[in-house]
């Protein structure tokens, strides 16, 4: 039973050495899978019809449903970030589901969820400054009265932390639980009994956490853009 993130090889870049970990390699594999999927979709839809049928219908429904989700969570301004969150959504979902095929999900490593969480943090700052103006956005940190400034700053900084640890904790806990069950079960039962656990932790929790991460991120951006 090993929950650790394996270090694959050591790399030196600009005089700094760092490990290429299992998380990074799995991320590349997932990237290749998603890019392959995108290329496949483009190939299949190289000539899109005005009246969609079959596969085109599925892709259009997927994009339109996602745009509706973005709009409902963050309002009109959210559409500027829909492309980013479309990728984040697919990446987190495929990462979480990759546990089904024996991968260690990249989202079970805090570095991945932190990268996503801080991206949301910077996007929130950018959205607030762009759509409300720098002055008005910064002024919102002093509301309702100036003494709330430290609390507001802490509240803002806590968002990427909470976002990243929520996703990381949920996925890692599922991974640990399933690994423990596999360890405890006799070899003959390992092929049948963990299936409900995989369905719950990998499918249900994985999809749910994907939606939660994107919904919260979008609501933060929507709140940052919204006028008082």
């Amino acid at each position: 039973m090993d929950f650790n993130i394996s270090n694959i090889w050591l790399v030196e870049l600009f005089g700094v050495e760092f490990w290429i970990t299992q998380t990074i390699v799995n991320t590349w594999i997932i990237m290749v899978f998603l890019i392959g999927f995108a290329v496949f979709v483009r190939f299949k839809l190289r000539k899109m019809d005005d009246v969609p049928t079959g596969f085109q219908n599925v892709i259009e429904a997927m994009i339109e449903a996602f745009e509706g989700f973005v709009k409902s969570m963050s309002g009109e301004h959210g559409k500027y970030f829909a492309g980013w969150f479309f990728t984040v959504f697919l990446f987190i979902l495929v990462s979480n589901l990759s546990a089904l095929v024996g991968f260690r999900p990249p989202t079970a490593d805090w570095v991945t969820t932190a990268a996503l969480g801080f991206a949301t943090f910077f996007l929130t700052l950018y959205a607030g400054m762009r759509f409300r103006g720098i002055g008005r956005y910064l002024k919102s940190f002093f509301e309702p009265v100036w003494v709330f400034f430290p609390l507001n700053v802490m509240g803002e900084l806590s968002r990427p932390i909470s976002l990243s640890f929520r996703l990381f904790g949920n996925i890692l806990s599922g991974l640990v639980l399933i690994a423990m069950v596999y360890t405890l079960l006799p070899f003959a039962l390992r092929f049948l009994l963990p299936i409900p656990l995989h369905i719950f932790f990998d499918l249900f929790v994985g999809a749910l956490q994907t939606i939660i991460f994107c919904a919260l991120s979008l609501s933060y951006i929507g709140a940052a853009c919204a006028e008082e």
Binding site: I35, A38, G83, L90, F91, V111, L116, F118
Partner: peptide, 20 residues
């Protein structure tokens, strides 16, 4: 690793946005 993952996700976003 956070920076590396950020770069990975940014790259993925750019490619998925361009391709899909």
């Amino acid at each position: 690793h956070i920076i590396a993952q950020s770069v990975n996700i940014l790259l993925l976003t750019a490619l998925l946005a361009y391709l899909l």
